[in-house]
Design a protein around this nucleic acid. Structure first.
Length: 465
RNA sequence: UCCUCGUUAGCUCAGUUGGUUAGAGCACCUGACUGUUAAUCAGGGGGUCCUAGGUUCAAGUCCUAGACGAGGAGCCA
């Protein structure tokens, strides 16, 4: 029995076992040639590059060769040889070909020439087969893996927070309701409101908008934890930076103060960038060439430079003294607009900026209050091109301070009694932050629209695939 | 949700002050070419000009409404 080398395209391209009999399976990107010889560029998703299959047409049925069109799927048996052509080092001289699946050229939407990203979004079920999405999706995997690796190596535990939560919890944005009630015949309370007592959970429930509050419980038991899971926002946001369903990484650390929190955020982001550059350079080079010529330089730059650490008050001062005309005027106490963040990051410092100590009135109730009575220990990491990539803070661990803040803001104590209780039982200083995974992917890939860094984007009015 | 722009062949787009039968490149099909590199060359087929109304002798072109898409803003990650 002949020994067959069953390797993927990535492995075959790196192989030098010329003369070896091999089998390769994949999808046809292009076919070209003439009456006597055909060249097929075959890709199996393992790597951005294709392997060239050389077909002496005389050795095969004409009908078989006709079936080999862009998008069709093949199993090719052949000999791995050094290429006599210019474009590649190795190629496969085909001896046997099975067409697993044809792709009728009249109706197959993907062509071997360029498509717009907007068009590819309309055929999201096929776009993973393109070079661009192959690269993006391999990098998406790489970043997922590197995130687990980073935290695992540093003693963090992966902590699973619930996706379905009681809905009247505080926090960001509108929520998607989860119910098994008959929407066409809702039970009503005597006051005429929906009666949830007969609903699946016996009360109103929704998809989570953040795992942070539960994550804090984990940190106050296991020390250092991180979450990495989907979150859901029912906001009607139509921008290149927002999704209705996105993935978030939320580390939470007992005994970390804001400074250590910042150090972790910076080290973490640099680790991920370095991981991509060192392990997925081919995909980055492709994306750099095709979509964003400054991608590699920008990644290198962020990697090599310290992030600027700046207090909100200082930032506001810089903005007010800048002489720059802003659409929204700057004064102490305002929430910074995109234009302000962009000015600080892209014009003034030309580096990533970590902005800290925001006015308490524009930040969440759980952030640790500073002694000045005006600010809280929040930190936002601002990146060039995409703006806020991380938001985090040291958490308020003092029960009375936290409770008074909850009351000030008129939040419902009943729904987060368990969260407040952590400050009654063995409370500890702790900190954490949230990283939007797709925001990270925008930065890593250089893609401009967040719908192009997730396989199946969920946005208002978009749920076909 | 607000503002701006857009929607013409499978894809990317052109289409002049409203005027005869709506064009190009690529893709596809046919043919040519002994090794191509998003192959090349020649020929061919392919259109609900987003939808519905309206103005006009005449609408892809002007008006109104709607649908969809993109960019910016807000919300945020």
């Amino acid at each position: 029995m002949t020994k067959l080398l069953n390797k993927n395209v990535k492995e075959l391209l790196a192989s030098e076992e010329f003369g070896q009999k091999v089998v390769v399976k994949g999808w046809v990107r292009t076919k070209r040639g003439n009456k006597n010889i055909a060249f097929v560029a075959l890709n199996d998703g393992s790597v951005i590059h294709n392997i060239q299959i050389v077909i002496e047409t005389a050795s095969f049925e004409e009908e078989l060769i006709r079936k080999i069109t862009t998008g069709s799927c093949l199993c090719v048996e052949g000999i791995l040889v050094a290429s006599s052509g210019q474009g590649q080092k190795v190629e496969i001289q085909a001896t046997d070909i099975i067409v697993y699946g044809t792709a009728d050229p009249d109706v197959y939407p993907l062509q071997k020439k360029g498509h717009s990203l907007e068009f590819l979004r309309e055929i999201a079920y096929l776009r993973p087969r393109t070079n661009t999405f192959g690269a993006v999706l391999r990098l998406r995997h790489a970043m997922s893996f590197a995130i687990h690796q980073y935290f695992n190596d540093r003693g963090f535990f992966y902590f699973h927070t619930p996706l379905i939560t009681a809905s009247d919890c505080e926090g960001a944005g509108a929520m998607f309701q989860v119910t098994t009630l008959d929407m066409n015949n809702l039970p009503l309370t005597p006051e005429g409101k929906t009666d949830y007592s007969g609903d699946f959970f016996g009360k109103q429930a929704a998809l989570t908008v953040s795992g942070q509050l539960e994550g804090e419980l984990g940190a106050l038991a296991l020390g250092k934890i991180y979450t990495f899971g989907p979150t859901f926002r029912a906001e009607n946001s139509n921008t290149p930076r927002h999704l209705s369903e996105f993935w978030m990484i939320e580390p939470e650390m007992a005994f970390y103060e804001i400074k250590e929190n910042m150090d972790l955020a910076e080290d973490f982001l640099k680790y991920l960038i370095r991981y991509a550059l060192e392990n997925y350079r081919d995909d980055l080079d492709f994306l750099c060439k095709m979509w964003d010529n400054e991608l590699i330089d920008r990644l290198q730059f962020v990697l090599e430079n310290d992030f600027v650490r700046l207090e909100y008050t200082e930032g506001v001062k810089i903005l007010m003294e800048s002489g720059q005309k802003f659409e929204f005027p700057v004064s102490w106490g305002i929430d910074l607009q995109s234009e302000h963040e962009r000015y600080l990051v892209e014009k003034h410092f030309k580096k990533p900026v970590i902005l800290t100590n925001y006015p308490k009135d524009i930040k969440a109730f759980y952030m640790k209050q500073n002694e000045d009575g005006k600010t809280v220990r929040a930190m936002d990491v601002l990146f060039p091109k995409i703006g806020e990539i991380i938001g985090g803070s040291q958490r308020e661990e003092d029960y009375d301070k936290l409770l008074s803040r909850v009351q000030e803001l008129g939040l419902s104590q009943e729904s987060i009694w368990w969260y407040l209780d952590t400050r009654r039982f063995g409370t500890a200083p702790h900190s954490g932050f949230g990283l939007g995974f797709e925001r990270l992917m925008l930065f890593i890939t250089g893609m401009a629209n967040i719908r192009d860094v997730i396989p199946f984007p969920r946005t208002p009015n978009n749920i076909e695939y």
